[in-house]
Design a binder for these strands. Sequence first.
DNA 1: CGGGGAAAAAGCGTATACAATGGGCGGAAG
DNA 2: CTTCCGCCCATTGTATACGCTTTTTCCCCG
Lengths: 246, 246
Amino acid sequence: MSQRQVDAERKPASGSGRPGKNGDGAERHEAIHRSISDAIIEHRLKPGARLREDALSEVFGISRTGIRKILQRLALEQLVTLTPRRGASVTRPTAEEAKDVFDARQMVECGLMPEVARRITAADLERLRDMEREERQALKAGEQSSAIKLSAAFHGELARLSGNATLAAFVEQLCSRSSLILAVYGNAGHLGCESHDHDALLRHLEQGDGERARAFMSRHLKAIEASLSIHEPEDESPDLYEIFSG
Amino acid sequence: MSQRQVDAERKPASGSGRPGKNGDGAERHEAIHRSISDAIIEHRLKPGARLREDALSEVFGISRTGIRKILQRLALEQLVTLTPRRGASVTRPTAEEAKDVFDARQMVECGLMPEVARRITAADLERLRDMEREERQALKAGEQSSAIKLSAAFHGELARLSGNATLAAFVEQLCSRSSLILAVYGNAGHLGCESHDHDALLRHLEQGDGERARAFMSRHLKAIEASLSIHEPEDESPDLYEIFSG
DNA sequence: CGGGGAAAAAGCGTATACAATGGGCGGAAG
DNA sequence: CTTCCGCCCATTGTATACGCTTTTTCCCCG
């Protein structure tokens, strides 16, 4: 019916922008993946939201085959949950998963700080300061969505500076999941990362003080985790015996 | 022994083989994934080996669609490399990737040891000892393939005892990639893990000495990495300018 | 008026068909 | 004899069609 179609990435007059015919598929898939991924990270798609294949294929103008591929990838990145015959939905992290993710971040991101402090260059610092500034501006403008995404990007970029691509990719994934966790357990109005924290962290890195950066990152992550209100989700199968036997 | 079901005889040449016939597909896909995964980890499929889709689809008796799905998952796990229009091949890790993987293992596996030491139970110890025994037997019997797989499984199981599913999955992936790295850079006759190491590690864990277990794991991993002969692979695109301008 | 069952509809899983691209091989020319 | 160019085939990328399962809605009966 409605023929709304979203160009995940507008390419200016480079070949035909027609979805049916040409167009390099790999890039397009990548763009669609990022598009959905961003929507999830920015909380424009909330945990539990169902992602029907037909709808997505219509929106992005490709067939269900491509959508399925992207959905599978998102599932492996733990951003969507694929239940066997009920399709895809945005993952709703459990309290346990939340703890695991933050413990993992604690271990990996903190462990990376000394190496980052050793390798960081002036250009890197400048880029990170730009990102931090952008994040703060978004926050001030009330655009929580952008701020969340930028914060995750900041942490990811930091990890990439360690030079270890494997760990950087892992951190990036953890940050995406953290964004999901914030969507479920975060208190409104209290965004995960305080901008001042990022600024202070950069100062420690600038001074090459890896140990202090590590300690600060540890506190930073602990603060985020502590700001969560971990309420067990509505118990799907309450233990009636326990409830009524008391 | 994993259930390998290569139903090659499942060719529906007769009309009875309706395409809609729906046995439980999820389990089958899982089994095929494990089958290919094991073959790679056990070095029965060597790095660089090409994995053609229709060949696989014929071998496993499912259509290319399912094979593609599995191949994509393997690609995200970094076990196979998917080059855009040339299909899939077993990943040939670069020296840099090898370093990244071992650095990551150093950070995560060692970092996990204290928690593992805290949580390990007698039953866990027994199971791990069984695994270690099996591994040693395989090694003694000259079945390097099995030994490699069992060694990876040992490390993975250990990580799982930390209670952190996210980190455990990551470690498992790293171990798989390590197996690939051994295939490329390992010296013949010198398997990655010495069985005695695993035994000693278990003793430390049994005593609840997390710090010693961590230190031991660190040495263990360093030993494996040191046993590799990292030779840059034949340079695919030699820099002719550099060669001839000097 | 509420609950349960049946039928229809909607959505997912799988296979197959078709198109496009890249590589391999052969022929021709230098 | 070697090298380059062009054509054909092999193999992947994408779409579509079809069956099956699950869910939802509606109607009938209690």
